[in-house]
Amino acid sequence: MNSSSLPQAENIPLALLTEIEKAITHYPVSRRSALLPLLHLWQNHFGFIDQSAIDWIACKLELNSIAVLEVVTFYPWFRQKAPGRTIIRVCRTLSCAMAGSYELHQKLCHGVGIDPSAHGNHEMPTSADGKFSIEFVECLASCGSAPVCLLNDDLLERVSLDDAEAIIEKYS
């Protein structure tokens, strides 16, 4: 995407604007309540949230930019840098760990050349070729089919080490 150098706010497609206006109508009592929905719509479209987005959304919701930034930095889901093309989030918590999620995470990371210890801090560990981001996340509410991970938007259950290989192969 060559638009990554351009401030995102200078490149808002009409469809996104329409969705933003619609989302705001869901909060008749307070415009500020539309902040999370707007950030989601934005990140779903652009892949991350840049400074221009923070200012634009602040202006849209009649807030100071800091009120948007402090929300962006609080939530693990939001990011301020572009992630890899395929995002894998491996559940780290107890039931999944008991079922081997650390081994799974390690196998995935090694498979695409990411350091498995480099997780956290609002920056998704991303492979050098930009194809994969892999991170640990906390319980994904599917502990009965551990270990699980989110592959982009889809939940994968009972993921074996062989599955890990198949995933890397398919998305490389």
């Binding site: 889809d154 074996s160 062989d162 192969e169």
Partner: peptide
């Protein structure tokens, strides 16, 4: 075969 398995999951 493994690939099928993960596709099924997806």
């Amino acid at each position: 075969m493994m690939q099928k398995q993960s596709l099924k999951n997806i």
